[in-house]
Simulated assay, not measured.
Amino acid sequence: MNGKRGVVLYGPPASGKDTVTAALAELSPRYTQFARLKVGTGKSTGYRMGTAEQLHELEAAGAVVYANSRYGNTYAIDKPGLDDAFEAGFPVVHLGQVDGIRSLVDGYPADWTVVLLWCPREVTEQRSEDRGDGDTSARLAAWEATREDLDAHPGMSWDLTVDTVAASPQEAARLIDQLLAQRTGAATA
C-alpha cells in the first residue's frame, strides 16, 4: 500500500484491547495505542482530550475519519492524529463498531490488520467489576451493542480472531505481531 501499517482491535468493553495493546508495546516499542480525540468527561488516559469546537473544526476541514458517541462522550479518529501516530510507528486503534472499522479502512489508506477480540458477557462484567469501573451496567449495554453490531454485519472479515479468555494478552500480541510480519514479509520489531 503506502508503507503504513496499523492494527485495529475490535471488541466489546473489557475484551482486552488495552491489555493486548500493552502486550504489543512490550514486544516492540513501535506499537503505540492511537489516542482518539475525546470530547466529554471521565477517563482521559489513552485519549487526547478536546473541545466541541476542536471537533467541529476538524469536521469542517474533512479531517474526521470516524466519530461516535458512547458513555455521554464523543470519540473521534482524525487524520492529523493518525498522521502523527504513523510517524511514531504502528498505531493500534481501538474500536467497538464495525462502521468505525469500515470508515477507518476506507478513509485512511494504510495496511490495516483487523483483529476481533472477544469474551463472553459475564467475563466483561467480571473484568469491569474487577477493574473498578463505576459504569459496569453501561459496559454491559455496550457489550450487547457490540454483539448486535456483529450480528448485523455477518460478512465482516477479520484478519485474526482471539478469544481473550483462552489466550493470554501476550499470546494475542504474539499472534498479531506474527500476522503483521507475514503480511509485510518483514519483522515488526
Score class of each variant (00 low, 15 high):
T124S: 11
E125C: 04
E125N: 13
Q126N: 03
Q126A: 12
Q126H: 03
Q126R: 05
R127Y: 04
D130Y: 03
R131E: 14
G132Q: 05
G132D: 05
G132Y: 00
G134K: 13
G134H: 13
D135E: 10
A138W: 14
A138F: 14
A138T: 11
R139H: 13
R139E: 00
L140S: 08
A141H: 09
A141F: 12
A141N: 10
A142S: 14
A142N: 08
A145E: 08
T146C: 10
T146Q: 08
T146L: 12
R147W: 12
E148V: 07
E148H: 07
E148G: 14
D149A: 11
L150F: 09
D151R: 15
D151M: 13
D151I: 15
A152I: 15
M156P: 12
M156H: 10
W158P: 04
W158T: 03
D159F: 04
L160R: 02
T161Y: 11
T161S: 14
D163G: 05
T164A: 02
T164C: 05
V165T: 07
A166T: 08
A166R: 12
A166Y: 06
A167Q: 06
A167N: 03
Q170D: 07
Q170L: 06
Q170T: 08
Q170C: 01
A172Q: 00
A173T: 05
A173W: 08
R174A: 02
R174W: 06
L175C: 03
I176S: 06
Q178F: 04
L179G: 13
L180C: 14
A181L: 05
Q182G: 10
Q182V: 15
R183T: 12
A186T: 12
A187F: 04
A187T: 06
T188C: 07
A189K: 10
